[in-house]
């Protein structure tokens, strides 16, 4: 099993593998989408060019999503689901005469699927807990509830940063605290 958790930064290797899988997805998807007949023949699915083309579009979309986001985890899991679909489709279409081609394709997909699962599991590890405790970093001498509004006594917002009086909302009679008027 690949160790995807080592490296100078946690998850760094899994992230790199995800990017590689993203590019692989786009490459495979482009081949399926642009040359469905050739691809279908290669995996023993002659006559199912439409399915191959649709799967190609799926691969491209997944690949772009993996590369475009900082959190590729859901999309790598998406690849795992895609692998299951690919394997099922190959199994259904495997016929006598094309069994060798289909078998090779199934083996290849299974290999990539293992990689996908390993990558998705590594990425899905729970985010780290807080490594430092900043619960005492208040920055104010008293708790927030006691400091609330402390600056209002001696601070007036400059005119250009205030809502003009005529545009200011009317105060509500049931407001617990009446809004101030500058």
């Amino acid at each position: 099993m690949m160790n995807l958790e080592s490296g100078s930064r946690p998850g760094q290797r899994a992230g790199k593998l995800a990017r590689a899988l993203g590019w692989f997805s786009i490459g495979l998807g482009a081949a399926e989408f642009l040359a469905p007949r050739v691809t279908a023949r290669a995996v023993g699915m002659r006559g199912s060019e439409g399915v191959v083309k649709a799967y190609g579009a799926r691969e491209i979309a997944t690949g772009v999503a993996i590369l475009a986001t900082k959190n590729p985890t859901p999309f790598v899991w998406g690849r795992v689901l895609g692998d299951v679909l690919d394997l099922a489709t190959l199994g259904v279409h495997a016929r006598r005469g094309t069994a060798m081609k289909a078998g090779l394709a199934i083996a290849a997909v299974a290999g990539v699927a293992a990689l996908d699962v390993a990558c998705a599991k590594a990425l899905s590890k729970k985010p780290r807990e807080a490594v430092r405790d900043y619960s005492d970093r208040r920055g104010m001498p008293k708790p927030a509830d006691e400091m609330r509004g402390a600056a209002r006594a001696d601070f007036e917002a400059p005119r250009d940063m205030r809502i003009p009086a005529a545009l200011r909302p009317y105060p509500l009679l049931n407001d617990e605290v009446q809004p101030t008027r500058h």
Binding site: P127, V131, Y134, S135, R138, P143, M147, R148, R152, V177
Partner: peptide
């Protein structure tokens, strides 16, 4: 003087410091 201050982030330490500030 805001009645309620809400802070949105995803880093535990930063959220902890935000809570410390009210």
């Amino acid at each position: 003087g805001a009645k309620q201050v809400i802070c949105i982030d995803n880093i535990p330490e930063r959220l902890s410091m935000a809570r410390a500030g009210g």
